[in-house]
Amino acid sequence: MKKTTYLVLTFFIISTSIFASIKLFSNVPNRFIQVDDTIHQRSRIAKRGSVTEVFPQFPGGAHALRKYIKENLKYPEISARNKVQGTVEINCVVTKTGVIEKVIVMTSLDPYCDAEAVRLVKNMPRWIPGNINGVPSDMHRVIVVDFKKNTDQKVATNADFNSIVTCGGIENKYSETIFTVVEQMPQFHGGLVAMKQFIAKNIKYPELSKKYKISGNVYVRFVVSKDGKLCDAQILRSLDAYCDKEALRVIRSMPNWISGKTNGVNVSVYYIVPLTFALPL
């Protein structure tokens, strides 16, 4: 009875936390380490002294970054013709050597603008790497690329676009778009209750995280493809390295979902699930 009550309370927090902001520990410095081939943000209690973080930056600073984007961005012809305007948000990792890796689209505009934003970021010169207490470190960076049709902006022809962003990375131009919101969102077979039960049955609280009383939510974003397969799972909001790794493991172990639909057609859709690691009361 106690166990059932605990699970109900835990997943009540999960369902409500999607719409709430997350409060990180104010006394916990943020670190980035590599776990399971993905760079995650790690929350860690500093036992002595303070942790100083310097975030990576484009050579010459923010002004130089804006100039680089303006001079190198090519507005996709098909997007310009369809009057598509807005921003694409790119999440990437600036390594300790200043190289940009793990480029993914966080906020999509259309497949052609997404592809152009990815191309632009991947072709950037080396950044000045970030550091923690003076030691160069791999760190995440979000780069916003604006697509606003100006008379002096370069326009790319369709021939310039041989690829677009899709589930599994960059594929050919005939691949599908990944949507963020559709008429019928994808769902776990059996719905939200069944998904919570699956997570409760399969999640394992990492012993080290429990030992150091790390608790809270890990937000995982993934793609539910048009055939219901889950792919491209990424940590959107980190807790610590061990909880992050466990959250990814659970998501990746899920069976196929019911795919999302728009206009009656199956499409690939981004989906976010929070997984809660709660210490016993």
Rank of each mutant, 00 (worst) to 15 (best):
N266W: 06
M106S: 06
S268G: 07
N217M: 14
S215H: 12
K204V: 12
N158M: 11
V93T: 14
P206A: 08
P206Q: 08
E116H: 01
D146Q: 13
G169N: 01
A62I: 11
A200N: 14
Q57K: 13
H140Q: 09
F222I: 10
M139S: 07
T38K: 15
I214L: 09
N217F: 10
T180Y: 05
D244H: 03
I104E: 06
V88T: 05
E53M: 15
D110G: 00
T276H: 03
V84Q: 11
G216I: 13
N256Y: 04
A20H: 13
I14P: 00
I100G: 07
N263C: 03
I104N: 04
V84G: 05
E101N: 08
A117N: 04
N82F: 11
M195G: 00
V105W: 03
V193I: 08
C243R: 14
G49A: 13
L230G: 05
F179Q: 00
Y270N: 10
P206S: 12
S21T: 11
D37C: 07
E77P: 00
N91H: 11
K70E: 11
E183N: 05
R119Q: 10
D138I: 13
I203A: 11
K3T: 09
R237E: 10
F55S: 03
E101Y: 01
M124S: 05
L109F: 07
